[in-house]
Structures are given as C-alpha cells and as structure tokens.
Computed example of a mutant assay.
Amino acid sequence: MDNSGFEELFSASPLMAILRGMGPQRSLAVSTTAWDLGIEVVELPIQTPDDIEALRLVAAAGRERGKTVGAGTVITEEHVAQAASAGAAFTVSPGLDLNVVRASHDAGMLSIPGVATASEVQLAMTSGLTWLKAFPASLLGPEWLTAMHGPFPDARFVTTGGMNAANAGDYLRAGARVVAVGSALEDPTQLPLLAELLGDRDRE
C-alpha cells in the first residue's frame, strides 16, 4: 500500500476543508467558499444518505473546477464502495484499518488512516502509508506532532478535530503538513485569518 500521492494533492495548500453533515446545497456553498479562498481539497464525511448525495454533488462540482474531493469517516468497506460511486478521489478514516485502506486503493482511491499513538503510526508506516491523519488533533496537541516526528521523520500528518484559524498555525509550525478546518469556513471573522495562513505558506 502506498498513499504518497497525497504529496501532489496537498502541494498547493496547507489547509483542507471538512464539511460535516451540512446537506447537499450548503456543502456546495461552503466548498465554493473554500475553493475561492484557495483551499484546493475538500472532504465530506459520509454517515447518512444525505451525506452521500452531498458528496456526489460536491465531487461533480469539484471536477468542473479541477478540485479534489474526498470522503471522510470511512470505517467500512461498504463506505469505500459508497465513496467510490459518489465520485470521491480519496478516503479518510478516524482510525487505522488496513482493510479499509486496501479496499480504497483497490477502488482507485488514495486513503488516509487515522492515528493517535506511536504504535499506530509505526504500523501504518511499515504498511507503506506515509500520510496519516492525527485525530483528534486538538486533544493530541502540537507537542504530539513534534514527538512523533522524532522516531518517524518521514510521516506526513494531516491534523483533524478541533482545528480553526486560531490554532492552525500552531499545528503547522509543529510539523503538520495539512490542517483540516470545518466550521471556520462559515465564520466571517476567521476567513481573513485562514487567507493569511494560505498566504504565509505561499511565501515560504
């Protein structure tokens, strides 16, 4: 298994949008906000039939704009099949299930498993997976990233859970490659701060 393809997907932006339970039309509207801001990659967790329809709509709109849309909270092989049929380009899971990763790859999608311990990071990396979801990031803290990069310098972490414009910079400075934000995209006071983060990365 290999998910190094995320290197290219995330090369344009250190932020990813996660749109949970917003329904089709609102998901499309917030995705458009993210794309217009400069966030290239959008993830829609799929837990209900409404979520699947939202993913289908946003994935189609993303293809028209050349943007990448994936499915989140993918915890079963059935979810993998649903994600693929809705047009997702990748899957994201809250935990480490190599069967889900393998099924995603077999369906032509990249996959990011969730990790929260050194043992999970080690198992994922020995399985060929370098891009990992640190979850729940707000509870793990930036220091967790610093600690993990010691023994696992090749790990690429996407931080998810409790991320916003106020703390995203802390996680990026601690070594996160991507920070996933959700409700911040609907907060007018946070949008300028998110844009500033994007601009900071562009200048690096």
Rank of each mutant, 00 (worst) to 15 (best):
M1G: 04
N3T: 11
F6H: 04
L9F: 02
S13V: 09
S13R: 02
S13K: 02
P14D: 14
P14Y: 14
M16A: 15
A17H: 13
I18V: 15
I18P: 11
R20N: 03
G21K: 05
G23S: 12
V30F: 09
V30W: 05
W35T: 10
D36E: 15
L37A: 08
V41M: 10
E43M: 14
L44Y: 09
P45M: 07
I46L: 09
I52Y: 01
A54D: 01
L55T: 06
L57H: 04
A59G: 04
A61P: 02
G62R: 01
R63E: 14
G66N: 10
K67F: 06
V69G: 02
G70E: 13
V74L: 09
V74R: 07
E77Y: 02
A84N: 08
G87I: 05
G87S: 08
A89N: 05
A89I: 06
F90A: 11
G95L: 03
D97V: 03
L98A: 01
N99L: 01
V100P: 00
V100C: 02
V101I: 07
A103L: 06
A103Q: 06
L110G: 14
L110Q: 14
S111N: 03
P113S: 00
P113Q: 00
G114Y: 00
V115C: 03
V115G: 04
T117S: 13
E120H: 03
Q122S: 14
Q122Y: 09
L123G: 01
A124S: 06
M125R: 03
T126I: 05
G128C: 02
L129K: 03
T130P: 02
W131K: 01
L132N: 01
A134I: 10
P136I: 08
A137C: 12
S138K: 15
P142C: 15
E143D: 15
L145D: 11
D154H: 05
D154S: 12
A155Q: 00
R156M: 08
T159M: 09
G161V: 06
M163D: 10
A166V: 07
G169M: 09
L172V: 15
A176T: 15
A176V: 15
V178K: 10
G182Q: 11
S183K: 13
A184E: 12
L185D: 11
L185A: 13
E186N: 15
P188K: 10
P192H: 07
L193I: 12
A195G: 08
E196L: 05
L198K: 09
G199D: 02
R201L: 05
R201S: 12
R203A: 10
R203Q: 01
